[in-house]
Simulated assay, not measured.
Amino acid sequence: MHRLLVATGVALFLTVSVATAQPTGVAQPTGVKVINDAGTSAAEAAVRAAELARFKAQTTGDLKALDALLGDELVYTHSSAAVDSKASYVESMRSGALKYQTIEPRDIQVRVFGTTAVITAAAHITAISKGQPVDNQLRYMDVWVLRDGRWQMVGWQSTKIVP
């Protein structure tokens, strides 16, 4: 199932046109394109809102909100190639091994396919990981599914942007 999910996400990433919008509720980065709300479907707007709510939960340590936004079968692949499940990812935040300080997304592109959505974007992320400061510029893709009327993230894959 995991391989199928990743393969599907990659295929969608490579073949589908994009829509962009300016994020709200998270630090506003420069260079973000603004799109008229009329050009964004309700589903795209809902997925984008869930993404930004996830970033807020990560930076504020709101693990209850984060738990609701992550699917139980989450596969979270960090830019270091380390892989977490939902349980291990949330535990790393609960224990203090991982503490997000800022997440500044840009170029968020949401594609919705029925009850599945793929986001591609870039982000500047600062954190403390195992006591060490982390300052990463990343490109990422994540996959969301609609369940019981709410969007949950089930896949994350990020890659460091090399200057």
Rank of each mutant, 00 (worst) to 15 (best):
K130V: 10
G149Q: 09
V10P: 06
V34N: 09
G25D: 15
R111T: 13
S95L: 01
V143A: 03
K130C: 07
L70R: 06
D37Y: 14
A127R: 07
A50M: 08
S92Y: 00
V16H: 13
D84S: 03
A11F: 15
A121I: 06
R150C: 05
W156N: 00
K86S: 04
K86T: 04
D107A: 04
T102L: 05
T77V: 13
A53R: 15
G114H: 03
Q101Y: 02
D62L: 14
L5V: 12
D62I: 13
S95P: 00
T77K: 04
V16L: 15
P29F: 10
H2Y: 07
G39A: 14
A81Q: 05
R94S: 02
D67N: 09
A68L: 14
A27W: 05
T24G: 14
T15Q: 08
G25C: 15
A123R: 07
A53F: 10
M1I: 02
V10D: 10
D135S: 13
N136P: 04
K86Y: 06
H78V: 06
A121Q: 07
A50T: 06
M153T: 01
Q101H: 05
L4E: 08
I103P: 00
R147H: 04
A21Q: 11
A121V: 08
H2E: 04
Q58V: 15
R94I: 06
E91Y: 02
P23M: 05
M153E: 06
M141P: 00
N136G: 06
S41N: 08
H124V: 12
Q152S: 03
D62V: 14
V32Q: 08
M141L: 10
L146V: 01
S85T: 12
V6S: 01
V26R: 12
P163K: 06
V18I: 08
D67W: 04
G71Q: 04
S80I: 02
T30K: 15
T59I: 15
P23F: 08
V110D: 00
P29N: 07
V18R: 12
I103V: 11
S129P: 04
V75E: 03
F13K: 13
R111I: 14
I119W: 06
S80E: 00
I103R: 00
K130Y: 09
A21C: 14
S88V: 03
E73T: 11
T126L: 09
K160A: 09
G155D: 03
N36T: 11
V145K: 05
S88T: 10
D142V: 04
N136S: 11
V143Q: 05
Y76V: 03
S95V: 01
A65C: 12
T59S: 09
V6T: 03
A82L: 05
D37E: 15
V118I: 15
I125V: 15
L63R: 07
T77M: 09
S79Y: 08
S88P: 03
Y76P: 04
R94W: 02
H78W: 04
I103L: 04
V143W: 02
Y100A: 00
S17E: 10
I125P: 05
T59P: 02
I119A: 03
K86N: 00
H78M: 05
I119R: 03
A82R: 02
D135I: 11
R3N: 05
K64Y: 09
T8I: 13
A82P: 00
A68H: 10
H2R: 07
G114Q: 04
